[in-house]
Design a protein around this nucleic acid. Structure first.
Lengths: 157, 157
DNA sequence: ACATGAAGTTAGCTTAGGCTAACTTAAATG
DNA sequence: CATTTAAGTTAGCCTAAGCTAACTTCATGT
């Protein structure tokens, strides 16, 4: 076998040894969480957008969803199929799209989180447009713990 | 055609009209940017990790990369093929992986950004572990403008 | 009332990132 | 030095999200 490139080589001191040995599972867990978040990011975007459109227009149409997301109609359609499968929306063919209870809950949670992220970014001096743009990517990766910290930070501003 | 659910209905005032009409391209652009960032996120993770491993062990082995990322060896292998294709790493079969100039530049940029994001989160009161975990997802969506704002914020702390 | 054009759907292709199974290569050790 | 075991590779499968092309449904305006 190839020369041990593993952390635990004899000439390393105990501290570094320990640090290295624990780096793997910890980091793997973090990446894994990011992957999970990535896979729900799209669901969250759709839920939030459907709630917005419903509020603005009284209904959420697939065309409007596609336009706002900047994707084609078939792409939106396919993604909506996933949301249906996961019980977040209901839709009958050629009719609009409606959030289920679960979908509304997700939308509400996401909306609040989005607002919070934008507010924090602006509080940190990020201009509005950049804050909105970056929030669109960032928001899906904010844990509950971080959310709470953000709230506290804004309060004592 | 179905009743116009578009923004520009007669009974809307000019302000809302304008807001709505501009919402589509703006929001579409934001989502599109998030999608772009998402597609480079993995490249950035690999580049950063390869740099770390090289610094720690003098080489970056596919097994270590896979273990740290929490994916299987074939998955890491396939992703590394993409990094090769995009000119970020070089690798000869059964030998380690090495960053190209471009790869090192990316790794350095990503490392600095990661540090900055963690520091900002901690400054906002997020505990270290959550800060590290969330940063792993967040970092890929931070624009240059936001990065600058973060730096300014940390300075005047 | 029907023609037309927009909205929606379906089929099928691509890329990406996961996985397992099976195989090959390399290196450490008896 | 031969064997065993770890590392790396290849093949092939799956799901997701993007696309275009082609088709169907719907609703509006003449």
């Amino acid at each position: 076998m190839r020369k041990a490139a593993s952390c635990a080589t004899a000439d390393m001191d105990k501290a570094e040894d320990r640090r290295c040995v624990e780096a793997e599972p910890t980091q793997a867990r973090r990446f894994s969480q990011a992957r999970t978040a990535r896979s729900t990011a799209i669901l969250e975007d759709y839920a939030e957008l459907i709630a917005d459109l419903t509020r603005e227009h009284g209904e959420a149409r697939t065309t409007d969803i596609a336009r706002r997301l900047g994707v084609t109609l078939p792409t939106a359609n396919k993604s909506l199929a996933r949301l249906k499968r996961e019980g977040l929306v209901t839709a009958r063919p050629y009719r609009g799209v409606f959030l289920t209870e679960a979908g509304m809950a997700m939308a509400e949670r996401v909306r609040a989180r989005h607002r919070l992220v934008v507010d924090v970014l602006e509080a940190l001096g990020v201009p509005t447009d950049a804050a909105e743009t970056d929030a669109e990517g960032i928001e899906h990766y904010i844990s509950e713990v971080t959310l709470k910290a953000f709230k506290r930070f804004l309060c004592r501003e």
